[in-house]
Write a protein that binds this DNA or RNA. Structure first.
Lengths: 145, 145
DNA sequence: AAAATAAAATACATTTTTATCTTTTATTAG
DNA sequence: CTAATAAAAGATAAAAATGTATTTTATTTT
């Protein structure tokens, strides 16, 4: 469903969120250790997210990634679109260039429901909520090894 | 959501179904022209599907792909799994190796709903039904060019 | 039996995704 | 001001997905 880049990105950002409340910044190495993701690859993703203003970052000692006031009301949807784009949310399930109610593919209507359900989920969930799930121990970002 | 291979595969098989009732076999070239898919690539996919007994084929003059009695009750799910595997239907949305109600990722419950909704759709739809949509003109397998 | 046909198999090429390593730049602590 | 730190940027590489072309095999028609 989501690309690997997106999976790592979501996990990384949720982790940053879950720690950012305490005001501290997080290094890529720490993040990747916690979420069990490849370091250099995840670094690239976070840098791209910083450029798109989904997360913030500073260089130098005590630097790292963190969440800024302006990023407080970001939804999971914004994050997913920033990494994977929005093709998943408007594209045809069977890959037709044009597919609509007027000219539908054989699964158009049912697939549309699924797609919209997913969009609804991602638009409903704020990063804040997801981070809270993790902070409170109700959810996890890595497999128990 | 689905791979390109899967998109082409679904469209190709639905088209074969929609024509197979008339008893005729279809060549790859004809299929690809109709569904607007790359010929050689789609041929590979259909060959793999023939090996997995999702469709039938014969070589030689008047040969081609067709649907056999034993393939009559195949669901869209069987086809998708034959091409893309079943990872989409059991895997974690955030890519965790272990993710369950007991040890959930932050979107486990909601994502599970989406995933199961998709599985339900694919398990409900038979190829026969989908082909009928196309035959009757209610649905299409290619963009109007 | 020979020629024609079409899938099957094989080989190859390109693009995208995933992943790693190195160098540069900005920032801060001492 | 200098050294240390950590992100940013750039280069490279491996793997997977996508796409194309050629050769082989099975079948049928003549």
């Amino acid at each position: 469903m989501f690309s690997k880049a997106c999976e790592y990105g979501i996990r990384a950002v949720i982790y940053i969120w879950s720690q950012s409340k305490k005001g501290n910044k997080l290094g890529v190495k720490d993040i990747c250790k916690e979420i069990d993701a490849p370091e250099y690859f995840t670094a690239k993703i976070l840098q791209a997210l910083a450029r798109q203003d989904i997360v913030s970052s500073t260089k130098g000692p005590n630097g790292g990634f963190y969440i800024d006031k302006e990023q407080e009301n970001i939804h999971l949807m914004d994050l997913v679109v920033a990494i994977d784009g929005d093709k998943l949310f408007y594209g045809c399930g069977l890959g037709l260039k044009q597919c609509s109610a007027a000219n539908p593919c054989p699964i158009h209507h049912e697939y549309k429901e699924i797609r919209e359900g997913l969009a609804r989920l991602l638009k409903t969930k704020t990063l804040r909520e997801l981070a809270e799930e993790v902070s409170s121990g109700k959810a996890t970002l890595h497999s128990i090894i």
